[in-house]
């Protein structure tokens, strides 16, 4: 009866490997903020690879704003299987950058994480198609193949579809998108998700012209959900309130500098990570600036949490299935007081 043992081991192996594959195997290791050379060590978990999307933190670090606040900041790059909410929750990082909609999803499932500052005031999400496909309005998506990265990034698209009377399961085909834009370029999909500051730029760099492309902007379509925000865990902030305010102050200063000179900010990021071209980093810096300081936004209020936008994100999330119950928007989940303290 060797086979029974084999059966058991197969179950274990499939279970374990899948767990590892999904990157959820790290145990909790609560980390006290330790001091090195008089500086307090803080780790920041990015949502994605080092790029101008996060230029504020890199500029602040390069210019010594964190050191000036007594902080030794370590910036952890993200990746497709690095989930900031999980990293912060199990103590690998102290502070995380994630999309607000994603954070709400975690909060609704009992994760004790607090939204503290909203860096991007607008949604950077586009649905891009080749002009030749003839997709101009959301209604034109009927019968088409549309791609998203999923994992929580699909809900603005769902909202867009349903707000325009399209059933995401029946009226079109949704497929998973990889981290290039090849599926759209090769016509494997009709419309693809693209961030204004990244994938849209990749399309232009691939030789397509603005006139070759149609885009549907989530902000214009009224289905924008808030993206890059800063969050911490309840446990960590309880012990590190002052430290966190200092972190915010330095970060906001960095963001202000970066938005004032996106070209320099792009170079700063490029110096940290050369995996994409300098031109792309600078392109990204310019686009990100438009989300951090949209036209008419008071530059002194970088990081401000607009409760209306938060409410819209929560409402859309509930309506289109990201959340199964109404989001709790008390100070246990969204707390602007650290930002208010930092910008005083």
């Amino acid at each position: 009866m060797k086979s029974v043992k084999k059966l058991v081991s197969i179950v274990l192996i499939i279970g374990l490997v899948t767990m590892l594959g999904a990157g959820c195997s790290s145990g909790t290791t609560k980390k006290e903020s330790s001091s090195t050379g008089g500086l307090q060590k803080v780790t920041l978990q990015l949502k994605w690879l080092p790029q101008s999307q996060f230029m504020g933190y890199y500029v602040a670090k390069e210019k010594g704003y964190y050191e000036a606040e007594g902080i030794d900041l370590e910036i952890l790059p993200g990746g497709s299987d690095i989930i900031p909410e999980q990293q912060v929750s199990n103590g690998v990082a102290d502070i995380g950058v994630t999309w607000l909609s994603s954070l709400m999803k975690y909060q609704s499932q009992g994760w004790d994480l607090i939204d503290t500052a909203q860096i991007f005031q607008k949604s950077g999400m586009l649905l891009v198609s080749k002009a030749s496909t003839g997709i101009v309005t959301p209604a034109d998506l009927r019968g088409k193949k549309v791609s998203s990265w999923f994992g929580g990034n699909e809900y603005e698209i769902y909202a867009l579809l349903e707000a325009n009377g399209l059933n995401k399961d029946k009226d079109l085909t949704m497929v998973q998108q990889d981290y290039t834009m090849n599926q759209l370029i090769n016509n494997d999909v009709d419309a693809a998700s693209a961030m204004t500051y990244n994938e849209y730029g990749l399309l232009l760099e691939s030789g397509l012209k603005e006139s070759d492309l149609n885009k549907i902007d989530m902000n214009d379509a009224g289905v924008a959900m808030m993206e890059d925000c800063l969050f911490v865990s309840k446990d960590w902030i309880a012990d590190n309130e002052d430290l966190y305010v200092r972190f915010l102050r330095a970060s906001i200063k960095g963001w202000a500098d970066a938005c004032a000179d996106p070209t320099a900010a792009g170079k700063t990021v490029y110096n940290v990570d050369q995996s994409v071209s300098l031109d792309h980093q600078i392109y990204m810096a310019n686009e990100v600036k438009k989300l951090v300081e949209p036209a008419g936004f008071d530059a002194a209020k970088i990081g401000y949490i607009d409760m209306n936008a938060v409410q819209q994100t929560a409402d859309l999330s509930l309506k289109y299935g990201l959340l199964t119950q109404k989001a709790d928007l008390s100070t246990a989940t969204v707390n602007p007081k650290y930002w208010e303290e930092a910008t005083k």
Partner: peptide, 23 residues
């Protein structure tokens, strides 16, 4: 399925749920 251009299958479902924290 983690990487596939599709949204069906156990692999995609596992990845997608775990990324959203739907443990």
């Amino acid at each position: 399925e983690y990487f596939a251009s599709s949204t069906s299958g156990l692999g995609f479902a596992i990845k997608d749920s775990l990324r959203k924290g739907e443990m």
